[in-house]
Design a protein around this nucleic acid. Structure first.
Length: 263
DNA sequence: ATGCGCGCCTGTCGGC
DNA sequence: TGCCGACAGGCGCGCA
């Protein structure tokens, strides 16, 4: 499920729901190497941060829960354990009786308990935060320089820019009018500047739209993912020019684009 | 060094 | 109804 916007909305919801609470019980289910935590007991949750697609839950014992949601992970609070879905992999009972639940049907997510220093080290390998002031057109251009790699897999590589996945990489490229197969190093400065702006806009719009949906208690916010312009729209008309959206394979992933609007 | 293909997992959906 | 393949919002590894 989650790329940067989804992870950011999960982070905000989590912060509201769990900050200052103490974990009083840990339950691990469907164990695998991807979940490596001992038991958490008597520690207070002091922060919930995001770096790229990682969540870092800061604890009062100077440790951190480092979470990556993989393809299908989700993290939220339920009132009692009975409400946790059967694909739940871990649960943390809070001092108010509710449960913080890590649900992950495909089990590609990761959950580890590490020292603050180790957590910091692990996220250090990530590239720039696209919604930070550090992310500028100039920085994007310097990262792209000299690379022959197609722009879409470049955008999905977390070492350069952290947080874009298959959906938002495709959406940003559509927004910028750039063909996903274009070698990133030979895009002009002007086109990279436009791509930079598109990345920021696409991510900000997605966060805003999902965050608004999340405020409505009646709505299942995850279903309010902003309508995609190209993602999973193969064969349907382009919203801008009407030509059918194409699907192609790149580095093993589906890429959607408009052959009319993206060059 | 760089870029691609595959394996890891389970769920869903459409076609036969 | 049941089976089968394709596909799915990610990452890390090994190989050319």
């Amino acid at each position: 499920m989650p790329e940067l916007p989804e992870v950011e909305v999960i982070r905000r919801r989590l912060w509201e729901a769990v900050h200052g609470r103490t974990v009083v019980e840990t339950k691990l289910v469907r164990l695998s190497g991807r979940v490596s935590i001992g038991t958490l007991h008597g520690v207070r949750i002091e922060s919930v941060d995001r770096r790229g697609k990682f969540l870092l839950v800061g604890l009062s014992d100077r440790r951190s829960l480092l979470i990556h949601l993989g393809m299908t992970g989700d993290l939220y609070v339920v009132n009692d354990w009975q409400q946790a879905p059967r694909t739940t992999r871990a649960g943390f009972r809070l001092d108010d009786g509710r449960w913080l639940v890590f649900n992950d049907p495909r089990a590609l997510g990761k959950l580890e308990l590490v020292s603050l220093a180790e957590a910091a080290k692990k996220v250090q390998r990530l590239g720039v935060e696209p919604l930070s002031a550090e992310f500028t057109p100039e920085l994007l251009a310097s990262l792209a320089r000299g690379r022959r790699q197609p722009v879409k897999p470049f955008l999905m590589d977390q070492r350069w820019v952290a947080g874009l996945g298959n959906i938002y990489a495709a959406e940003a490229l559509f927004e910028a009018g750039i063909h996903p197969g274009h070698p990133v190093g030979s895009l002009s400065r002007a086109r990279l500047a436009r791509l930079h702006r598109s990345i920021v806009q696409v991510l900000e719009r997605a966060i805003e739209s999902m965050w608004n949906a999340a405020q409505d208690q009646q709505a299942s916010w995850i279903e309010h993912t902003p309508v995609a312009s190209v993602y999973r729209r193969a064969g349907q008309p382009c919203l801008r020019c009407g030509r059918p959206i194409q699907r192609m394979r790149q580095a093993g992933r589906s890429t959607y684009y408009c052959p009319g609007c993206q060059r």
